[in-house]
Amino acid sequence: MRKMILLFIIVLSSCVNDDDGTSSPLPELTFEGKNTFGCTIDGVNFLPRESGFNLNDPIPELTSQYVFINLDAPNGYWFSIFADNEVLSQSITIERILSDMPLTERVYTFGNQEHGVLNADYQTIGDIVTNEYGNDFRRWTNYATTNQTAGELNIIKLDQDKQILSGTFWFDCVDPEGNIVKIRNGRFDVKYKNYY
């Protein structure tokens, strides 16, 4: 029995990811669909990471889609990148929705509503807190781009045959209280899905 308990502890500890992504260097800017993503958040490195605790986690730490959605209304091109760091309980989403124009290799401005909506957000989940009724919950904060915040998404490579999207980004985002987070040095090189 002791051997089984020891084995269980060893297996459990090996599943925990000690690398939270803050001390690792940002990935090189590549254009091959290597499924890389990185940026800085207020000067601290952010990389997608799995925690290792949830073996049946249905949400991968890095996903991307680029698809034309043909529904009743409104139709349009939809592009998104989702990067999750489970160790730090932080995530970044970049998306362009409701666009009548396909993506091209160019610079897009956050907050510009021309030919669709380009926005981004940064979410962080805090510690467990107890409310006045004795219920436990995790406090989360969402920081989002607005028409007043600055930022750019630069699509450097779009290969629709190989489903590769590569580029750079930076943006400021704000929470409901007006606190600003600066996302800088962003780069990605992803293989995207072309279905919804």
Rank of each mutant, 00 (worst) to 15 (best):
R2C: 05
K3D: 05
M4S: 09
M4T: 10
M4E: 15
I9A: 14
I9N: 09
I9Q: 13
I10P: 04
V11L: 14
V11I: 15
L12T: 07
S14E: 06
V16M: 07
D18F: 03
D19V: 03
D20V: 00
G21A: 06
S23I: 01
S23Q: 13
S23F: 05
S24L: 03
S24M: 02
L26A: 12
P27N: 14
P27G: 12
E28D: 10
L29Q: 12
L29T: 07
F31G: 05
F31C: 08
G33F: 07
G33V: 04
K34Y: 04
N35H: 04
T36E: 15
G38R: 11
G38D: 13
C39F: 10
I41R: 06
I41N: 02
D42T: 05
V44L: 04
F46A: 08
F46V: 13
L47I: 07
P48D: 13
R49H: 15
R49Q: 14
E50W: 05
L55V: 14
L55I: 13
N56D: 14
D57P: 11
D57C: 09
P58S: 13
I59P: 00
I59V: 04
I59D: 15
P60F: 05
Y66R: 02
V67Y: 03
F68E: 12
F68T: 05
I69Y: 09
D72F: 13
A73R: 15
A73H: 13
G76Y: 09
Y77E: 04
Y77Q: 10
W78Y: 13
A83W: 04
E86T: 04
E86R: 14
V87G: 01
V87E: 00
L88W: 01
S91Q: 15
I94D: 08
R96P: 00
R96S: 02
R96K: 14
I97Q: 08
S99E: 00
M101Y: 06
T104F: 07
E105P: 07
E105Q: 09
R106L: 03
Y108C: 01
F110K: 05
G111I: 00
G111F: 00
N112G: 01
E114I: 08
G116L: 01
L118C: 06
N119Y: 14
A120D: 11
D121A: 00
I125K: 15
I125N: 05
G126S: 02
G126Y: 01
I128C: 10
V129S: 12
V129C: 13
N131A: 09
E132I: 12
E132D: 11
G134A: 03
N135C: 01
F137P: 12
R138I: 03
R139C: 07
T141N: 14
N142A: 07
Y143V: 09
A144L: 00
A144D: 07
T145G: 03
T146Y: 01
Q148W: 00
G151Q: 02
E152Y: 14
E152S: 03
L153H: 06
I164E: 04
I164Y: 06
I164M: 11
I164T: 11
L165I: 15
G167R: 10
W170L: 00
W170E: 00
F171K: 00
C173H: 03
V174S: 00
D175M: 11
G178M: 04
I180M: 14
V181I: 14
K182M: 02
I183L: 12
R187A: 08
R187M: 10
K191W: 05
K191G: 03
K193A: 14
K193F: 06
Y196D: 11
